[in-house]
Simulated scan of single mutants.
Amino acid sequence: MEKIIQEVLDSNRKYTNYGQVASYIPELKKAKRDDLGICIIDKDNNVYKAGNCDTKFTIQSVSKTIVLAMALMDNEWQYVFSKVGMEPSGDPFNSIMKLETNDTKKPCNPMINAGAIVTTSLIKGSTLEEREERMLKFFRRMARNENIGINYDVYKSEKMTGDRNRAMAYLLKNDGFIDGDVDEVLELYFKQCSIEIDAVDLARIGVNLASYGVDIANGERIISESVSRMVKTFMITCGMYDASGEFAIKVGIPAKSGVGGGIMASVPNKMGIGVYGPALDKKGNSIAGVKVLQDLSQRMNLNIF
């Protein structure tokens, strides 16, 4: 396995030259464009690594999958989806347009920023501090890593440049999709995006989703099978921003990307895959990371379709 992933990494490293690191959040510009790493954890808990798989980066939009799982565990699923839709948007992840133009004004899905802000608002807790602690505890549990925390430099950078997300949040509050204090919701959202992980953490989260919510390391159930299925379905239909359809055809694996350069993939009943490559295409996906996953899917027959 390690020979395969090293070959795949080496053959696709050239694609790091085709993209740029995210710059709209200033702190993300510090990433090294030519970094590329991969980790696979299979259903038998074997760990395979290559490249920059231990490099730390912030989870960004990959966090939307985990927070969605929390929201679905904290609330009836019917209530969650009364606040956020289930359909692909076809628009950029930070688009604000359909909050005004669609009939319901409801965010299209939980994988775009507007929908993710709504799901963040659904995390239970009597104070912001309690919700933050619950969120971090759940991330650590999914990744089996008690050292996971928030990168406060990135958090401050997110907060400083987050006016578009503020605009979305206040529109959502005005239209009844967010209850409670908007500033507290945004504070938690900026912090969830600034959680620092590596490709190994993503692979661990991915394999626990692949096993339908059961921790493969000890057999304990973390989330229900139904929640796991819903999360993976959103990963397929909406997880790669407005390139999700193309990714489903070419790769065929449930996956979620983030502008920090990470991609988390989950092959049902087989494995979790974490990829790190901060050189992004114009849609916000790791160029080399997508190519790596496409090659792996073809070589190992991972396409779920």
Rank of each mutant, 00 (worst) to 15 (best):
residue 249 I to F: 07
residue 299 R to N: 07
residue 18 Y to P: 02
residue 159 K to Q: 13
residue 274 G to D: 10
residue 215 D to K: 02
residue 49 K to P: 03
residue 160 M to R: 15
residue 288 A to M: 05
residue 106 K to S: 00
residue 79 Y to D: 11
residue 79 Y to V: 07
residue 262 G to Q: 01
residue 160 M to N: 15
residue 24 Y to W: 10
residue 100 E to Q: 13
residue 253 I to G: 01
residue 202 L to E: 11
residue 230 M to I: 15
residue 143 A to V: 00
residue 164 R to N: 12
residue 205 I to F: 08
residue 155 Y to I: 03
residue 245 G to S: 13
residue 133 E to S: 15
residue 282 K to Q: 13
residue 12 N to S: 11
residue 80 V to W: 06
residue 93 F to V: 07
residue 83 K to C: 11
residue 126 S to E: 15
residue 186 L to E: 02
residue 278 P to D: 03
residue 160 M to L: 14
residue 167 A to F: 12
residue 241 Y to V: 04
residue 175 D to Q: 15
residue 287 I to W: 00
residue 200 V to Q: 10
residue 263 I to V: 12
residue 243 A to V: 07
residue 266 S to Q: 08
residue 62 V to R: 02
residue 171 L to S: 11
residue 5 I to C: 09
residue 4 I to N: 10
residue 204 R to C: 14
residue 213 G to V: 08
residue 147 N to T: 07
residue 60 Q to A: 08
residue 187 E to Y: 13
residue 166 R to S: 12
residue 203 A to S: 09
residue 272 G to R: 06
residue 304 I to G: 02
residue 156 K to N: 11
residue 170 Y to W: 14
residue 138 F to V: 05
residue 87 E to I: 09
residue 114 A to M: 00
residue 155 Y to T: 11
residue 214 V to H: 07
residue 14 K to S: 15
residue 58 T to S: 13
residue 237 T to Y: 01
residue 244 S to M: 01
residue 17 N to Y: 08
residue 258 G to L: 01
residue 40 I to K: 04
residue 255 A to N: 05
residue 265 A to I: 01
residue 269 N to G: 06
residue 49 K to E: 13
residue 123 I to V: 14
residue 116 A to M: 04
residue 305 F to A: 13
residue 214 V to P: 06
residue 103 D to E: 15
residue 85 G to R: 06
residue 235 M to N: 04
residue 178 I to V: 11
residue 2 E to I: 13
residue 9 L to F: 07
residue 151 N to V: 12
residue 141 R to A: 13
residue 120 T to Y: 11
residue 207 V to K: 04
residue 162 G to T: 10
residue 10 D to H: 12
residue 298 Q to A: 12
residue 145 N to W: 04
residue 93 F to H: 07
residue 143 A to D: 03
residue 20 Q to G: 02
residue 76 E to S: 14
residue 162 G to V: 00
residue 304 I to P: 01
residue 178 I to T: 02
residue 134 R to A: 09
residue 138 F to W: 08
residue 182 V to R: 05
residue 183 D to M: 12
residue 243 A to K: 06
residue 259 V to W: 01
residue 44 D to V: 04
residue 228 S to R: 08
residue 67 V to P: 10
residue 140 R to M: 08
residue 287 I to N: 10
residue 271 M to G: 03
residue 252 G to E: 00
residue 238 C to Y: 02
residue 98 K to V: 01
residue 36 L to N: 07
residue 236 I to H: 00
residue 158 E to L: 02
residue 200 V to A: 09
residue 291 K to G: 00
residue 212 Y to G: 02
residue 26 P to K: 09
